[in-house]
Write a protein that binds this DNA or RNA. Structure first.
Lengths: 364, 364
DNA sequence: CCAGCCATTGAGACCGGTCTCACTTACAGA
DNA sequence: TCTGTAAGTGAGACCGGTCTCAATGGCTGG
């Protein structure tokens, strides 16, 4: 019954044709469900295929047709639940259209990202969904686009690139975040993100179409509109590793005039920041207030529950996949999934501690 | 400079050969780095390739050589940080050997899993790493094995299948967990897992080489050795969705003699169980003790910090990849990564509440 | 009864690489 | 000078599908 040979050669159309006593062309037609095939030939071929355990070779199919059935997904860090969930959305949506997902993790490294694009293009994926780790180094994406490959950007857009981008607009919700902190009385609010940027953040710096731009901009605007002071030096980017994150926290917390509130750009950052806060023995929200982006289950279970900005990550993934599929000529629902973030107020934001103005921190 | 045509035909070896004025065979040799090629031809070809923007077609390469450069990974739920992290390990290890990862999410559905195996086999992946969602339905994995494809099982093994399996041995640590609960005075300890099993759990049921078997077995053994009572009906499997998880929690908590401790099979389950506990207004560890498998950052940040069994998930992923690569004839470090789990005692285990023996729950 | 149309069929080219094989040429050793 | 060896080269088969094209045969309308 079962072949013993380890390198069991797979049966090919030619094998099936031979077994069924018809031409290769006819067997291929019967198997592939195209062209004209008589009942008789059909059943002969189907029986032979069954008997030989024929399984079409997707590689050969892709090669001849030029159409691939896989799409490439490039993310900075699958460990990040944000991407995990998005990936799930992509995967679910794309599967219905008959595609599989080739995943590459870049560790938030632009070079690795460029390499991944190359590799996936060589693998002739039908299209690419990329969560770019840099808003500035984009040559590889442009080149992919130029080669006529469908590319969809996820989360982060890039100015001046005519690439489809799926991202949610954080302007409003970020403004809300700013106001919440402002109203609570905070004047020194930190922002921590893993976004790659060559230099430290400054006022009005172009962060591309990154959500970070929206989010920082929103807070800034809230303060500006209220005529309140806003310190851009408390925006800490490049916190992609444990070390850099720790450094960012140190800069925010271990200074004469520490931040009294910190906004975390995603749940992974939040986890790290929370750890740093805990290590210093600071209490939330008495000593420091915290707001995080992404509403994952655990944010409600920590003490105190975190005030967060919820975003429909799963649907964002689906939407990215839909945009891509559309570009590939598939029929997908025309309406766009509503991708609106909203603020979930819980208990991690409070009034800043009354401090002496002498500038010497009094904790620890 | 850049082609305008959208369907920009990619340059082929033949194109390069023509441009360089050499034969296709020579161009291929120069480009592929095999066979004998003179300096002169080499530079001519390289220049021509450069100029045409030649990019090898991985599909064609795989087809002719029969060697694919992608490996398939099938998991039940990428959303689960456990798999996310493992995937990362796999991805990192495999990339060094020049492979990419094709990922399929099965939603813990055995049928979807079987379909995924088919699909990936048709795509001619070099090998498969599967975290099987069932310990009983395994025909698709056997068949893949029989076809001479390398298959490595992750997390869950299957009795009687000669498949390489990467899993950690939980026997010792599970015994520890059992003793900790026993010593704290618990007599009714629940276990919640998403493992698919046709019927409810019973004493001595064969759960295959699933970690759940180890874990439940360890607790059971601790109680047996101490001559203490152990109620197998408190083992709740099949809790793969929000609903089934809620149902399992209801069965454990909303009964005359509720469980006084609950062990969560993974972090996703723990998140769900914690939510259910919170909803009921129960307090940890006063009203109920909790132990969870997988030590993710958030488990230390909840109140109280969770007592957990830590396992080297990332390394497990790497090890699975290594086993697979070895099977594919690659050289990888011979020693096996040590995959030892250990108990991290934090504050979520305490003594069960003294209860009246009348059997009426007094919470709420 | 014959042209015309259509369903069915097989031969063979093609996709873009790899690789075998035969052939040429250069050079070393005898 | 002759032979043996090795490097360099090109022609063409091959992988496993798809698809074009021409040929065949049955059936219909005039």
């Amino acid at each position: 019954m079962t072949k013993r040979g380890q390198t069991a050669k797979e049966a090919t159309v030619a094998d099936v044709a031979r077994a069924a006593g018809v031409s290769k062309a006819q067997a291929a037609r019967a198997l592939g469900g195209y062209g004209a095939v008589s009942e008789q030939v059909l059943s002969l071929v189907v029986a032979a295929a069954e008997q030989l355990g024929y399984r079409p070779n997707q590689l050969a199919k892709s090669m001849t047709t030029g159409r691939s059935n896989s799409i490439g997904v490039i993310v900075g860090d699958i460990e990040n639940a944000h991407f995990g969930l998005a990936l799930r959305g992509i995967s679910d949506e794309v599967r219905d259209a008959g595609y599989t997902v080739v995943l590459v993790n870049t560790d938030e490294d632009p070079e690795a990202e460029a390499g991944a694009v190359q590799e996936l293009l060589q693998q002739r994926v039908a299209g690419l969904i990329v969560a770019p780790c840099s808003s500035t180094e984009t040559a590889h994406l442009e080149s992919a686009q130029e080669r006529g490959r469908a590319v969809v950007l996820f989360d982060r857009g890039i100015h001046g690139l005519a690439l489809d981008t799926v991202r949610v607009d954080f302007a409003d919700v970020a403004l809300q975040v700013g106001r919440v902190l402002l109203d609570a009385g905070h004047r020194r609010v930190g922002y921590v993100s893993s976004l790659r940027i060559p230099e430290p953040y400054e006022h009005g710096m172009d962060l591309g179409l990154s959500p970070v731009a929206d989010r920082v901009g929103g807070i800034e605007r809230a303060y500006r509109e209220a005529g309140a002071e806003w310190d851009a030096s408390l925006v800490k980017l490049n916190a992609a590793s444990d070390d850099t994150l720790a450094a960012a926290c140190a800069e925010l917390l271990d200074q004469p005039e520490p931040a009294t509130a910190v906004v975390c750009s995603d749940s992974l950052i939040a986890l790290g920041v929370l750890g740093q806060i805990k290590r210093r023995g600071l209490r939330i929200p008495d000593d420091i207030s915290v707001v995080a982006y992404d509403d994952f289950l655990w944010t409600e279970l920590v003490e105190p529950p975190l005030t967060v900005v919820a975003q429909p990550v799963y649907d964002m993934g689906r939407e990215a996949a839909r945009v891509l599929l559309r570009r590939l000529g598939h029929r997908v629902p025309a309406e766009q999934l509503p991708l609106r973030p909203h603020l979930v107020r819980r208990a991690s934001v409070g009034a800043p501690r009354a401090r002496t103005t002498t500038g010497s921190a009094d904790h620890r």
